Deep mutational scan, measured.
Amino acid sequence: MDVFMKGLSKAKEGVVAAAEKTKQGVAEAAGKTKEGVLYVGSKTKEGVVHGVATVAEKTKEQVTNVGGAVVTGVTAVAQKTVEGAGSIAAATGFVKKDQLGKNEEGAPQEGILEDMPVDPDNEAYEMPSEEGYQDYEPEA
């Protein structure tokens, strides 16, 4: 019985440690998101679009440190934060509304985080759909 109880105690310690790591990862992701939003706020009209992409990228980098179902929630929060940063930029006159959601080359930025393969159960990952990809044929 002692062996059984000791095993359960060790398992509990492992769960607590994993929860603490997840909590730490979420806190880091939130900190990076805040950094990115402050970065966007300090940019001029020309830099705002690039700044919004930076927020998304920093958040995406930190999301990889967070495991399990938390990833889905962090990704949703990050996307809403990026959308909010863009709205703030438009409201303050840093950028025109028609410039939001495009990178410096004018290509749409939507789907940055949505296409990231995420499995809350950590069982399997699927690649994003290939609808947006084109076949590449090298020139002879």
Rank of each mutant, 00 (worst) to 15 (best):
P117K: 07
G73N: 10
V82K: 07
Q99K: 02
G41S: 12
L113P: 10
D2R: 01
T72N: 15
S129N: 04
V71Y: 08
V95D: 05
T75L: 14
K97S: 10
N122H: 07
K45Y: 13
V49T: 10
Q99D: 11
E104I: 07
M5P: 00
Y39N: 03
E139P: 05
E131T: 10
E130V: 15
G111Q: 12
E114L: 09
E123K: 08
E57L: 08
L38Y: 11
E20T: 05
G36A: 09
H50E: 06
L113T: 09
L38K: 07
V37Y: 08
Y136L: 09
T72S: 13
Q62E: 03
K96W: 15
K43Y: 12
K21W: 08
N65M: 07
Y136G: 06
K60A: 14
E83D: 08
Q79S: 11
Y133E: 10
A30K: 02
K10Q: 04
G25N: 04
K12N: 01
K45H: 02
K23F: 07
K97A: 10
V15R: 00
T75D: 03
V71R: 09
K6C: 02
K60W: 12
E83L: 04
I88F: 14
A107Y: 05
E131A: 12
K32N: 02
P120W: 05
E110C: 07
E126F: 07
T59E: 00
V118P: 13
Y136V: 08
E131F: 05
S9L: 10
G68L: 12
G31S: 12
D121C: 08
V49Q: 09
D121P: 09
H50S: 12
K10W: 06
K102S: 01
T54R: 15
K58Q: 05
A17Y: 11
E13W: 04
G67K: 05
S42V: 10
P120R: 12
N103R: 07
D135V: 09
E57F: 05
G68Q: 03
Y39F: 11
V26A: 02
G41Q: 07
Q134T: 03
E104V: 08
E123C: 14
A78Q: 03
Y125S: 06
V48R: 01
G132T: 13
K96D: 07
I112G: 10
F4I: 07
E61Q: 09
G93H: 06
Q24R: 12
K21I: 11
K12S: 04
Q24C: 03
G36C: 11
V71H: 04
M116C: 08
K12M: 15
K32S: 02
A107D: 09
V118K: 09
V16I: 13
A76W: 14
K97M: 08
D119H: 09
L8E: 00
Q99A: 13
T81Y: 12
G86L: 14
G68P: 07
K32F: 12
A76T: 14
E105G: 07
E123P: 11
G41N: 03
T54D: 01
A91L: 13
E131G: 04
A19M: 05
A90H: 10
Q109R: 11
N122W: 08
F94N: 03
V16L: 12
L8T: 00
Q62F: 05
I112H: 09
S129L: 06
K12L: 14
A78V: 11
Y125N: 06
A107H: 08
V48F: 13
A85S: 04
K80Q: 06
T72P: 02
A27C: 12
K102L: 13
T64E: 07
G51W: 15
G41C: 11
Y133C: 08
E114A: 03
V48Y: 05
V26I: 15
D119K: 02
D98T: 14
P120F: 06
A89L: 14
Y125R: 06
I112C: 05
H50Q: 13
G84D: 03
I112F: 05
G41L: 02
P138F: 11
K43P: 00
A76R: 09
D98M: 05
K6D: 03
D115R: 05
A19E: 00
D135W: 07
E104T: 07
